[in-house]
Design a protein around this nucleic acid. Sequence first.
DNA 1: CGATATTACTTGCAATAAGCAAGTTTGCGA
DNA 2: TCGCAAACTTGCTTATTGCAAGTAATATCG
Lengths: 124, 124
Amino acid sequence: MKDDKTVEGKVAFERSCCPITHALDIFGDKWTLLIVRDLILGKSRYLELISSAEKIASNILADRLKRLEAAGLITRRAYQQKPVRYEYSLTEKGESLKPVLSAIISWSQKHHPGTQIFPAVEPR
Amino acid sequence: MKDDKTVEGKVAFERSCCPITHALDIFGDKWTLLIVRDLILGKSRYLELISSAEKIASNILADRLKRLEAAGLITRRAYQQKPVRYEYSLTEKGESLKPVLSAIISWSQKHHPGTQIFPAVEPR
DNA sequence: CGATATTACTTGCAATAAGCAAGTTTGCGA
DNA sequence: TCGCAAACTTGCTTATTGCAAGTAATATCG
């Protein structure tokens, strides 16, 4: 994992102090927002996340979950012991990406007919 | 450049028909939305785009401009002959990404104090 | 009791993409 | 003719992805 802190403990902007740039340093890739989407839709476990339509590789999923946790967008907690199993959930910072996803959905639905929002999963 | 059409001429969704996924197939990387940002801010020429704070490599910029044009988000036209020089501008599809960028800016400003919106460039 | 399952990951390696420096093309102006 | 500018392109190194297989800690079945 990349260290983006200075010696004094303050976050150093990796590329620039532009808010868009900083956001893209967190979720500017093909997978991160899809994981956020799935968590918003109600998924929480590794196997639920990995079984999405886009077929993310397991190492990429594990890597993104670690980054998302490091960036403060999700938390990881054990939902059982023996054997220990984990589930992920969005923090307030992660939840607040909803308007971003909504804007993307609106744009895509306008310009790419045929796309369809995925349904929420039934609560456990 | 990747061909994403089927034989019948219809767009085949590369990963899934989710609107978010399809959008990320277009701008899900660290650079594309920064180029869109710069075009919105009033930049239009290659040298203006390449001189942004984030120091994009020239081959990456050229590649992203081609992809953006292929995706219908920007157009390229010569603004002079002898020698021929080009400028880029957003199409309606590209302009309509503004709400997406606004949402990202709002999110980032809320969660990353210290980020600052870049100023528009003075019109030519 | 041993064999097979399940969940949540890791590891190794090949393929793809990004980053960096340097080079190319077409003209202009001194 | 020499140098310069704009808009890219090329070659090469390094980093990231994608794919298949493997692992650890139980649980469950026969």
